[in-house]
Design a protein around this nucleic acid. Structure first.
Lengths: 128, 128
DNA sequence: CAAACCTTGACAAACCGTTGGTAAGGTTCA
DNA sequence: TGAACCTTACCAACGGTTTGTCAAGGTTTG
C-alpha cells in the first residue's frame, strides 16, 4: 500500500478529515478506495488539496465556487447558457432584437393605458 | 421619458422590485439612473432580466452563481487560477511535479519513523 | 399641495454552504 | 482479542444568500 488514510492526509494538508469528505462530496478531490472502502490519498490528491487551499485563500472563494466552476467546465449547455447571458454585458441597444422593441412598445402602451384608467395597484409583483 | 421604473420593470419581468435591487447589487443588471437617482430600465435591461430568469430556472442556479461566473470572466487572475486547478483533474500521476514526489517521500518517511520501525506496512501514525 | 411614486438602510426569516461532532458498525494490526 | 483506525449518517451551529417588509426621506405629477 502506498497511500495515506484520510486522517494522515488531513494532517499533511491542513484540512480536517471532515473537510476532506466534504471536498470529495462536492466532487473536487475524489481519492481512490481500498477494497474495504477506505479512502486512499496519493501524491496527486495531496497536491490538489494543498493547491486548493491556496486557491481559496488567494481569491477569497468557497469550495462551492470551485465546484461551480467545475460544473461550468463539464456541463457544456450550462457554460453556453451562462456565457451567452454574460456576453450581452451592459445595456447595449445593439443587442436588443426587433422582437424586443416590439414588446417594448407594447409595454409602453400598457403603461399609458394603466395610468389613464383603473386605480394603479400598489402591490409588488410577487412571483414564486 | 423612455424607460420603466423599478416597479414597472418588476411587473413586466416577473421579478420583485426587491429582487431587481438585489440583482443590481450583485452586479448582474445595472440600470441607468435618472438625474434624481431613479432606476431606469430600458429594453436591454428588461431582456436581460427575462433571460436571467430563464437561465436560472433552466439550470437550477442561484443569482450568486451567475455573479461568480461574471467574476470569473472579469478577473483574469481568478480565472487562470481556477482553470489551472481544474486542469489537473483526476489523480493523474503525470500531473505531479518532482517537488511533489519529494514531499511525498518525506511524508512516507515520517510515517515510517512514527510507526517505530514497521517494515512493509505503512499504516497510521497517531499524532494527537 | 398631496398622492403615489422613488431612494437607501435596516431588520428578519428561510434556506443552504461550511464545519464540527457523535453514534453505530466494519477493518487492521500488535 | 482489543485498540485504533476507518466507514456512513445524522444533528447542530454559524454565516451567507435570497427575499420580504418597513421606516425616513426625496421626486413627480395631477
Amino acid at each position: 500500500m502506498d497511500a495515506l488514510t484520510i486522517h494522515e492526509a488531513a494532517r499533511t494538508t491542513g484540512w480536517s478529515a471532515r473537510m476532506l469528505r466534504y471536498i470529495e462530496q462536492i466532487g473536487l478531490v475524489e481519492p481512490d478506495r481500498s477494497a474495504s472502502g477506505y479512502r486512499q490519498y496519493g501524491p496527486g490528491e495531496l497536491q490538489r488539496l494543498r493547491t486548493l487551499r491556496e486557491l481559496l485563500d488567494e481569491h477569497d472563494l468557497g469550495p462551492a465556487d470551485v465546484a461551480f466552476a467545475l460544473r461550468l467546465r463539464r456541463d457544456g449547455a450550462l457554460r453556453a447558457g451562462v456565457d451567452a447571458w454574460l456576453e450581452a454585458e451592459p445595456s447595449r441597444p445593439e443587442t436588443v432584437s426587433a422582437a424586443d422593441w416590439l414588446r417594448w412598445e407594447q409595454e409602453k402602451h400598457a403603461r399609458l393605458l394603466g395610468a389613464a384608467g383603473a386605480p394603479t395597484s400598489t402591490m409588488e409583483t410577487t412571483t414564486r
